[in-house]
Simulated scan of single mutants.
Amino acid sequence: MSDTRNDLESVLIVGAGLLGTSVGLALSSAGVDVRLRDSKPEMLAEAVRRGAGRPAEPDDQTAQLAVVAVPPEAVGEVVAGVLGRSEAEYATDVASVKVLPGTQVRAHAHDFGRYVGSHPMAGREISGPGAALPDLFEGRPWVICPDEHTHQQAVTRALSVARMVGAAPVTMTASEHDAAVALVSHVPHLVGVLMAARLVDAPSHQVRLAGPGIADVTRVAAGDPGLWTEILTANALAVRSVLGELRDDLDELIGVLDTAEPAQADLYRLMRAGVDGRSRLPGKHGAAHTEFATVAVVVDDKPGQLARLFADVGAAGSNVEDVRIDHSPGQAVGMVEIDVRPGVDTELRAALTARGWHVHA
Rank of each mutant, 00 (worst) to 15 (best):
T4G: 12
D7E: 12
A16C: 15
G17F: 01
S22F: 01
V23S: 08
S29H: 10
D33G: 02
S39G: 11
K40I: 11
M43I: 03
M43G: 14
E46I: 11
A47F: 13
R50T: 10
G51P: 05
Q64S: 12
V68G: 02
P71I: 11
P71R: 09
E73R: 15
P101Q: 07
G102W: 07
G102V: 08
F112I: 03
G113K: 13
S118C: 05
H119L: 05
G128K: 08
G128H: 11
L133F: 10
L133P: 04
G139Y: 00
H151T: 06
S160H: 04
V161C: 07
V170N: 02
E176S: 09
A180Y: 05
L183F: 07
L183K: 07
V184S: 03
S185C: 03
P188I: 00
M195N: 09
A196M: 06
R198Y: 01
S204T: 12
R208N: 08
A210Y: 13
A215T: 13
V217A: 07
T218L: 06
A221W: 01
P225R: 05
G226H: 08
W228H: 06
A234D: 07
V239F: 07
L250H: 09
E252P: 08
I254P: 01
L257S: 08
A263D: 15
A263S: 15
D266L: 14
L267E: 03
V275Y: 00
L281T: 00
P282N: 03
K284M: 08
G286Q: 04
F292D: 13
V299H: 02
K302I: 04
G304S: 03
G304D: 02
A316C: 04
A316D: 01
G317D: 07
S318A: 15
E337R: 15
I338V: 14
R341A: 15
L348G: 02
A351K: 14
